[in-house]
Amino acid sequence: MRLSAMADSLREQLQSPAYTNLSFEERVGLVVDAEWTRRKSNQLSRLIKKATLRYPNACVEDIEYHADRRLEQSLILRLATGKYIHEKLNVILMGASGAGTEIFK
């Protein structure tokens, strides 16, 4: 059935005394959550690999906010939340390719 994360989680529960105070339902919930989390993580990894991104390990926290780039850290972090999608706001990125970008709302 390919439930390796569930098996790993169950082994961890059996070896650790910290889980003895939990009810059966809580322990089963933890095992199911571990499987779901691993499947989602594997799916995301597959999608990133399939996308053949130039920088697959890039993240918002690694952005360098030098003065010459004219990036507002608060705005970038706000955009990183994705809240603008739910609010149905438009984002326009302007600038020459490779010369950096400016973000306007």
Rank of each mutant, 00 (worst) to 15 (best):
L3T: 06
M6Y: 01
S9E: 13
R11N: 04
S16T: 15
A18N: 04
A18I: 05
A18T: 15
T20V: 11
N21T: 09
N21H: 10
S23T: 13
S23Q: 14
E25D: 13
R27G: 11
V28A: 08
G29W: 13
V31M: 12
D33V: 06
D33E: 12
T37N: 15
K40R: 09
S41G: 04
S41M: 07
L44S: 00
L44W: 10
I48S: 12
A51N: 03
A51Y: 01
T52Y: 14
L53H: 11
R54F: 01
R54A: 11
R54K: 08
R54P: 02
N57E: 06
A58I: 04
A58V: 01
C59S: 15
V60A: 11
V60E: 12
E61I: 01
E61D: 14
E61Y: 02
I63E: 09
H66F: 04
H66R: 07
A67R: 08
A67Y: 12
D68M: 03
D68V: 14
D68Q: 06
Q73E: 09
Q73S: 01
I76P: 04
T81P: 00
G82M: 14
K83F: 07
K83P: 05
L89Q: 09
L93G: 02
A96F: 02
S97M: 00
S97L: 00
G98E: 05
G100L: 04
T101A: 15
